Amino acid sequence: MVIYLDHAATTPMLPAVVEAYAGALPVVGNPSSIHSQGQNAKRMLEEAREAVALSVGADSVEVTFTSGGTEAINLAIKGLFWARAPRNRILATRAEHHATIDALEWLQQHEGAVIDWVPVSDTGLIDLDYLNAALSDDVALVTTLWANNEVGTLQPVRAVADLAAAHGVPVHADAVSAYGYLRLDFPSSGLAALSISAHKIGGPVGIGALVIARSATVTPLFHGGSQQRARSGTMDVAGSVAFGAAASMIESDQSRLVALRDRLIDGVAVAVPSAILRGDPIHRLPGNAHFTFPGCEGDSLLFLLDVAGFSVSTGSACQAGVPEASHVLLAMGLDEPTARGALRITLGHATTVAEVNAFVAALPDAVARARAAGYADREPHLGH
């Protein structure tokens, strides 16, 4: 049996969500059609929109369904940027998700954006003093994570929004990793836009949403029908229904996950004393534990643990088949060799104490073998 400890990557679909999804798939009717079948599809869609809106305290009119978190983030960043022209400066950190960083770099290369990279601390916390000094009336937007997807650090979203509001600058928060694990109250956040995704809360892959404040203006990425406030395209009724079902089932599981996470962190500290916890030790996602292991390659650890029956993550990017050191850890000031020894363990609604205990028990052997492999690779090879 494989123990799944990679909930930050995706969560298993909940049985009730699978049932709702399967029930909606055969429904015939375009929700933009005015006949009865189309209106039935529209009713299902709007009920799902209401459920998603309720899960973050928003109004249903503020929810634009997307194909997932990546599209929601791109719509927020590019849409706010275009709507705020000729302002061309964007404030963000280098510890963001690649969906944000790649969108920013695209705007820099093709749309004349000037990216002002805000530093983060050694725990991944945004530098509010730098942000405050960098804010001015020529800034198009600020974008920040609500919670770091790799190291779990929680960002002071309301403080960021308050600083930006003094200059009339809209703020977008990527809350994909926070959604379902923290209570997100969109109206009190001060945000212009909030990105979320269904598959992080027990919903299906391929459906997400951008929550856009009534006061915010976002230029759409897609044109051709204006089916939604900020997005054209025939809407995915079944995916939306499944998203709504998952959103309506979000429970306050935070205290249980915090206890499990702390049990894991304490267990790792005893089992592998050289392991270093990364991210904020207190203000972090309930289910996130992220470590670096000196002398180990994170990929080696991942494969060894996989063979032992545990699914975890390095949290690092892998582009074109070439593993890279985590850009998040590098932004936090770690050097590349240290950053390459990372392992992210993330817990979810189905994680048990027994699974955490089993992981802690299996970890020392995996670390010892990964270190041995690393030392062997560094030894000079003699031969002809």
Score class of each variant (00 low, 15 high):
Pro323Trp: 00
Gln39Glu: 09
Leu347His: 03
Glu46Cys: 01
Glu251Pro: 00
Val2Gly: 00
Gln108Asp: 08
Asp122Glu: 15
Thr93Val: 13
Pro337Arg: 10
Ala165Asp: 02
Val56Glu: 05
Ala192Leu: 06
Ser33Phe: 06
Glu150Ala: 14
His223Leu: 12
Arg256Thr: 07
Ala76Met: 04
Val28Met: 07
Thr217Ser: 10
Gly124Glu: 14
Val63Trp: 02
Ala175Phe: 07
Tyr375His: 13
Ala289Tyr: 08
Ala325Thr: 05
Val157His: 04
Leu347Phe: 03
His384Phe: 12
Gly321Tyr: 00
Asp280His: 15
Glu111Trp: 08
Phe243Val: 01
Ala289Glu: 09
Phe310Arg: 00
Leu80Glu: 06
Ala24Asp: 05
Ser326Met: 09
Gln228Asp: 05
Pro281Arg: 11
Leu45His: 06
Val353Trp: 03
Asp266Cys: 08
Ser300Thr: 07
Leu334Gln: 13
Asp377Gly: 14
Asn149Asp: 13
Thr143Cys: 15
Val151Arg: 03
Gly112Asn: 05
Arg183Phe: 06
Leu80Thr: 13
Ile212His: 03
Val118Leu: 11
Pro364Glu: 04
Thr153Gln: 15
Thr10Ile: 10
Ala246Glu: 02
Ala83Met: 02
Asp365Gly: 07
Ser195Gln: 12
Gln37Trp: 08
Phe186Met: 11
Leu80Cys: 10
Ala354Cys: 00
Trp106Val: 07
Pro220Gln: 02
Pro170Asp: 04
Thr219Asn: 11
